[in-house]
Structures are given as C-alpha cells and as structure tokens.
Amino acid sequence: MKLNKLIAATWLSLLSLQAIAVESDLQQEVKIEAASQEADIKNNQIIFNGPVEVTQGSIKINADELRAFTKEQSNGKVLVATGTPATYSQIMEDGRPAKASAAEIRYELATRTLTLIGNATLEQDGSQVTGNQIRYNIEQQQLIAESTGNDRVITIIQPENYQELNEPDSKTQEQQ
C-alpha cells in the first residue's frame, strides 16, 4: 500500500509539471509549414512532407512527415507527426518550457491529447518520463506512460532545489 501511495505521489508531482499549459495556445490557429503537401480528398487526409513545423501559439511540433485528418463520424482533427524523432515543445504558463519526443506524435485537437509512441520522452525542468508510449491530456494534465516486454517506464524527478542549483549565481555574474 505504501508503494502505491509513493507511486501516486511521484506521478502527481510530475503530472503537475510545475506549471499549467498556456490556455491561449489551445485557442489559436494551427499553422503547418512543410516542404510539400499531398491531399487525399476522398479519405479526408493531407500529408505534409518535411521538414514539417506545426505551430499553435507556443506549441511547436517538428517532424519528417505529418498526416492531418478528421476522424470518421466526428469533427475531431488529428495530426500524426513522424520523425527520427518527432519533437513537441510548449511554453508553460510560468514561462518554463516543456518538451517531448518520440518516433510518432499524435495530437488530437478536440480532446487536446498528445500521444507519444516509440522511444517516448516527456520532460520539464530536468524531470522526465520515458517509455514506449506516453499519453498526455494537455487540458486535464493527465499522463499515462506504458512500456512493453522487458522495457520499463522510467521517471526521473529532480530535487526541489533543482532550479536554484542550475541558475547562475548573481554574485558570480556581477564579479565577471
């Protein structure tokens, strides 16, 4: 039972990611820049060939290829970025960056869900979660990380004073 409470406390501290996402990001337009694009109108899909950069406010996704489509029987738009790796970054409300990378990044705009598949990593302030798959609901700040076979989910949480230890000493800078 104590182990379950420890695991829950660990996840809660990482899930908060020390900040919340900038709400205005999710209300802005999605802009996609690519080297080329192909439209498959019959299947309601556009394929962007890279390098590809997607921006929505401070959210940035970089990939080798991006597929954008609407789910069947819904209006939910989905972006699937692939790369070696594909990357995601966002500036949080407090100004600190959050980053993610994976072989595939799936971003569902309607549910504001980010799914990282294949060598997935999510990090902020030196703390990170890695696994084969990480699913993160940006709006609700809920995270699920999974691995398969002998692979394990790894969580690294920096000590409370991590920021203080990594900030340049103002006295040292003044002396220079």
Rank of each mutant, 00 (worst) to 15 (best):
A120W: 00
N43C: 08
A8D: 10
K77D: 10
A103N: 14
N44T: 12
S127C: 09
Y107V: 11
I20N: 06
Q142G: 02
S74F: 04
T82A: 09
N4P: 13
S89H: 00
S127Y: 13
E123V: 04
T172N: 07
L14I: 13
I61Y: 08
L66T: 13
L114W: 06
N150W: 01
I154M: 07
I156N: 09
E38K: 13
Y162T: 11
K31N: 08
F69C: 04
L116H: 07
N119P: 03
T130G: 03
Y136Q: 03
A86M: 02
R152V: 11
E164T: 06
T148M: 07
I154N: 14
S89L: 06
V129G: 03
Q133P: 07
N119V: 03
D125T: 02
F69I: 10
G118Q: 12
A81V: 08
Q73M: 05
K60A: 12
Y88K: 11
N132V: 04
R67P: 08
S127K: 03
T87F: 02
F48H: 12
P97S: 01
E104M: 13
G83I: 06
I32N: 03
Q128E: 10
R67L: 02
G95W: 09
S74H: 05
E174F: 04
E72V: 13
L6G: 08
L66F: 08
